[in-house]
Computed example of a mutant assay.
Amino acid sequence: MFFGKGRWRIETAARKGAIRSILIVEDEPLVAFDHEHHLAQAGYRVAGTVDSRDGAIAVLNGGGVDLIIADVGLQGARGGIEVARVASDLGVPVLFATAACPLDARQWAVGCLAKPFSQRDLIAAIETVEALLANGAPAAIPPGMQIFPTSG
């Protein structure tokens, strides 16, 4: 199944939904650890946790990533946006999780969850992305989340 311009793919998952394996791209170690813990508790598999564009691309090239949660302000100023560009080319959706949602990068991501946010809101944002990818109609959007429109 495809969303928007057909950029993102969904595969059948053993988990309840289609998103089962998530790559975390975050350069704050405590934030990354917190994400890992809560995603695992929610039943997701963490495909990797990296703090740079190059690390993210290496994991992406290995395959098996259903969603990327990326901070925008990585080393290299726009590292998260570069990750989203590559992910878009590979058909992997991206949810930005950052203090300043980038207006100029909407074409490469499904949406943005503004920091600070609770881990409950992070899980709800992933479920919102999953609903968008599956049928385009999320039941609810968590506080601080923006969904980026796609043309298609």
Rank of each mutant, 00 (worst) to 15 (best):
Q107T: 12
A13Y: 00
T150Y: 03
A56G: 07
D54H: 13
P116E: 06
R9K: 14
Q41C: 10
V31M: 14
A134N: 11
R45E: 11
I123F: 00
A105N: 04
Q75D: 15
A40L: 13
V31E: 08
L90F: 08
D71N: 15
V129R: 04
V46N: 04
V94G: 04
E11W: 09
P29N: 07
L30I: 14
L39H: 10
F117H: 05
P138L: 10
V31F: 12
V72D: 12
E28H: 13
G80V: 05
A32C: 07
S52K: 06
W8H: 07
V25Q: 06
V46D: 03
G64T: 09
W108P: 01
V92K: 10
A56Y: 09
S151Q: 14
G48K: 01
L95E: 06
A99T: 11
K115I: 10
V65R: 01
A70E: 08
E28Y: 11
S88E: 15
M145D: 09
G43Y: 02
I24Y: 03
I126G: 00
D54P: 08
Q146R: 14
F33M: 15
E28N: 14
A114M: 07
Q41I: 14
P116F: 08
S151P: 02
D27E: 13
A70W: 00
L74V: 12
E82H: 14
P142D: 03
G64P: 08
V59H: 07
G73Y: 15
D66G: 04
F117P: 00
A125C: 05
L132H: 02
A77L: 13
A97G: 08
D66R: 03
V59I: 14
S88P: 01
F148R: 05
M145I: 04
A140W: 03
G55V: 11
V129M: 07
D51L: 09
P102S: 12
Q107L: 12
I81R: 13
L60K: 08
A32I: 07
Q41W: 05
E127F: 01
A114H: 03
F148Q: 04
A109G: 00
A105L: 07
I147R: 09
I19V: 12
F3M: 01
P138C: 09
R45F: 05
A47Q: 01
T150C: 05
R106T: 14
G64A: 10
Q146P: 00
G76F: 06
D51Y: 06
K115H: 04
A42V: 02
R15K: 15
L95D: 05
F96I: 08
V110F: 04
R106C: 08
A114Q: 06
G152S: 11
G64H: 06
V83D: 10
G62R: 10
G6V: 09
R7F: 11
R15S: 12
K16C: 02
I57L: 15
